[in-house]
Design a protein around this nucleic acid. Structure first.
Lengths: 214, 214, 214, 214
DNA sequence: CATGAATGAGCCTTCATTCAT
DNA sequence: TATGAATGAAGGCTCATTCAT
């Protein structure tokens, strides 16, 4: 097959990446072989190397693709004139909805990547620098920090608790909830009984809003 | 002389399991080979199969052993005459200390197990039903639930928030903090800046004690 | 318009062969891949097969080309009226200079070809019969033989030593020196400390001129 | 197969090394695959790795074995009271006989090693430091140098020619002769018509002994 | 019971060559 | 004539497991 449209190539890459994502859904990262992908994509053993230099490059691309698609979902940004409390509540509500709408694979990857990298520490830099995950989360945490700081400045929230502790607790809690969801969606764990939003509501009310100065 | 033989066997199994735990501490679950264990245990390649039918059986046993040994550490139980608020605070303090003192491997296993199982979904039942991790956690959660319920009954806490949501948030938060610690102890992540206890203090005060009826 | 086509083909072949020679200069014969050549020649993967049936055919052609081009350099021929001793000395001096000025690739090929052929003994005849290296050497040896014979006829040299032995020793020595130079130019060996000419001087004086009847 | 005599293992290693040498005889170094050796030795794919960690280790061992076996042949050492001329002649005679008796493979290896290493420069140090070839040659050259120096000191030989040039010419010549023999024994070249000794005789007489002060 | 030699499926990757376009 | 995508054999090596002793 000779010179082929740019599109053909793109579609081929697309097909391979999609196949890789399919495999990622049903196998743990570390256990994925080229053959898995080759079979799923319907390629010949050598063919895949026309599009990806090695298995790492392919996995990274697939993971990034997953991340990139997810990041299309944007959280609303905080506006200055909003009330702090309602802004916080909204932010968490959106995050809750976002997490619920997230494909299971997102969390699966986040989960598996850690062990994968720890096993190949020499690859850690290469892989990590090429991965572009977690933008939504970063954006969310920034906004939360902003709002809490503002609340403290305005004496709405208690100034005595160190910011670092609060932010850490917030993100630990979110991680915990996320893992729970991954666990149920991907690994057959017991599912949450309500939409994530509702758990967040309780959290934001007692945990954050009640930081209020008494 | 069956008794002697029985004993001999037990000791042998014990030695193997202990070796496996040593390996678990330094390698990711999925990367452990029979040779790792054999070398650590000072066994012969064939010998291990006299005591364990395959590598899975051995890993499961080792993981369970870790869980069981951990449970020897007991949290103090709640006594009836203690004040609810201080009991809760104490419980969390103990848990914080417990987590800090926990061997990294506990969390490491919890983390890696999930992906391991997903790889052998057919084994999930066998493994999971045999796995008995997290008993400390279970005991802790029971006591927390007890105290909160009691607080609600005594109208100290707000009755309107469903128990299920609260307990879920509590355990999600604890999981999140635990993962963070595992991540730093085992996988080279950024460590928490303070003892776990301090994060818990903030959490228990705002999240739980402020459930108080206003 | 067969002529134009004929010419076009020739130029194409020429381009490919030249590219192959470039590759030969920097890679061991056995390690050269079609891709190396294709890239150097700026060709398409399939295109090369329009001009050469396989990689062997191409390599042979390239090696022959090297040999042919080298032969353009001419050693001065011996003239009848020259004195035998000074003719011999001159011949060797020229050869020394020639060897020093020789592109490293000549020796490299001589070296690598032997092993390459031994790998495809069935191709040995085809390749060897097509290979025309060493014409300079042949010409040189002829002249040396001529001069020595002449010297013997004139009773200047010792007649008792068989010509065959002398010529063999001369060419063995030259091969040895050549290999040494290849070894240093191409394979990173320790270089000779002086120009080749000086080693030859010593050789020709003691080895050949002293064949003189005592 | 359980615990096995030390001898069994030795014999196995021996068998493998011998198989490797067989392969070395008929294939160029760079083209030898584990499968070649495995088949020749009648092993299973994995079995060979019980005895050799990788193909390099095995090849090195085989090459060293060849060298070691060869080195059992000792050249006589020069004694102080011998006449210089006859000592030199004897030395060369012995070397000639040695070379003739040398298995073809010795030279083949010497030949192929150079290109092999040049292709894997990163392996050069590892391999070379582990190779123990050429002891006979080294010993020979030492003795020749000794004798010539002695001859110069005693004004038997011409002092004006730098030792470095002489020694270089001697060893270049020997290399050239050796290659010729390899070429005929291994690569199908035209064989020498006489025992090597005779060529050496001519060389030593004209080239070295005639260093004599005239 | 114990040993450890042996097996062979499986992994990633390269490359000469073919062939549809 | 030209292209370059596709193929698949082959290469080095690892590892769980078996089984003769």
């Amino acid at each position: 097959m000779p010179k082929v449209t740019e599109n053909y190539k793109k579609e081929k890459v697309d097909k391979i990446v999609k196949a890789t994502i399919e495999v990622l859904k049903i196998k743990p990262l570390y256990d994925i072989t080229m053959l898995d992908i080759i079979k799923t994509a319907g390629l010949s053993k050598g063919g895949i190397y026309l599009y990806f230099k090695d298995i790492d490059e392919l996995l990274i691309e697939a993971i990034n693709r997953i991340g990139r698609e997810q990041d299309l979902i944007e959280l609303s940004s905080v506006r200055d004139d909003d009330r702090i409390e309602s802004s916080l509540a909204l932010l968490f509500e959106e995050l809750g909805n976002y997490i619920d709408s997230c494909p299971a694979i997102i969390g699966k990857i986040r989960f598996e990547l850690m062990t994968y990298i720890s096993n190949n520490p020499e690859k850690a830099d290469t892989i990590m620098s090429k991965l572009q995950l977690n933008n939504v989360g970063a954006h969310f945490m920034e906004n939360v920090a902003l709002l809490i700081q503002k609340g403290m400045d305005q004496n709405i929230f208690d100034k005595e608790i160190p910011m670092e502790i609060i932010m850490n607790n917030v993100s630990a809690y979110i991680d915990g909830i996320s893992d729970r969801i991954v666990s149920s969606k991907v690994y057959g764990g017991k599912p949450l009984q309500r939409p994530t939003r509702e758990y967040f509501q309780q959290f934001v009310h007692s945990q954050i809003l009640l930081l209020k100065n008494k």
